[in-house]
């Protein structure tokens, strides 16, 4: 049964914009850790981008990875502290664009961390530029003002379709546009932490998340866009599950 108590791990306010999905993701992470009793061994790796706010918001030891390098930073920590619960909270620019190599090789090495990637289709912190991996064709950003054009900018890519072939423990995508999907996303994140608790391999959970500020939309319009457009390109669900259990 879901809890409505605010997680005690959240001790400071974060500076995310109104309607941003990062805060929901942070809340789901902390709820999962507390429900699993892992809050006292959590080490949080954030990126130098929007997820950075979580560094001070939580009562966890935390480290900011160089932009894009979170999976590598988490690898270093987990190898030194195998009993700690090491997780990454980063964006899609970090994890799939500049840090594509780090993300993929951490997956290939099957490092037993839990990686949560916020897919909001944009570079939020730097003011809303196009994301090569996740901005949809036709979406307008400050660096694709006429809309993303495949001829000059290529197509977005479903990274989970690639990562699922790297023999990882668990790869799944959730969304935040309604309570049902938030619940589903939470189950995926929890599974990622359970895998780490049970000394299993690399788990990645991507979350389709709104960025109303840079999408120049109201929060409700942003949720509608995810449901009607982004999810078509990036379907939710489990992409691979080595344990083979249902979530």
């Amino acid at each position: 049964m879901a809890t409505y108590r605010k997680p005690v791990s959240i001790i400071n306010e974060a500076g995310w914009c109104g309607g941003c999905g990062h805060g929901v993701v942070q809340r789901l992470i902390t709820e999962c850790l507390e429900e699993l009793g892992l809050q006292d061994k959590a080490v949080c790796v954030v990126d130098i981008a929007c997820s950075y706010w979580s560094l001070d918001a939580l009562d966890y030891d935390a480290i900011a990875g160089p932009h894009g390098r979170c999976a590598a930073v988490a690898t270093g920590i987990k190898k030194v502290r195998p009993d700690s619960t090491v997780y990454v909270h980063a964006g899609d620019g970090s994890s799939y664009v500049i840090g594509l190599s780090e993300t993929c090789y951490t997956a290939i090495r099957d490092i037993p961390i839990t990686m949560i990637v916020v897919n909001n289709g944009i570079f939020g912190m730097t003011g809303g530029q196009m994301n090569l991996a996740t901005t949809l064709i036709g979406d307008k950003t400050v660096s694709s003002k006429e809309g993303r054009d495949a001829d000059t900018m290529g197509h977005p890519v479903d990274m989970l379709n690639i990562i699922k072939n790297l023999d990882v423990e668990f790869a799944a995508r959730g969304a935040l546009y309604d309570a049902k999907h938030i619940d589903e996303t939470k189950r995926y994140i929890k599974r990622g932490f359970e895998n780490q608790m049970n000394k299993k391999g690399f788990s990645i959970i991507e979350v389709l998340s709104p960025c109303p500020t840079n999408w120049k939309m109201t929060p409700i319009q942003a949720m509608e866009k995810i449901k009607n457009e982004n999810e078509k390109m990036f379907p939710v669900g489990i992409y691979t599950d080595r344990g083979g259990e249902t979530v």
Binding site: I63, V80, S84, Y105
Partner: peptide
């Protein structure tokens, strides 16, 4: 200890950043 042949120098240094913060001599 842990030896990792990194995918590049940048990621290797990021692993060092994590491992050093976790207290290891690296």
């Amino acid at each position: 200890g842990t030896f990792i042949q990194g995918e590049n120098e940048i990621s290797s240094m990021s692993m060092i950043w994590g491992a050093a913060a976790a207290g290891a001599r690296c």
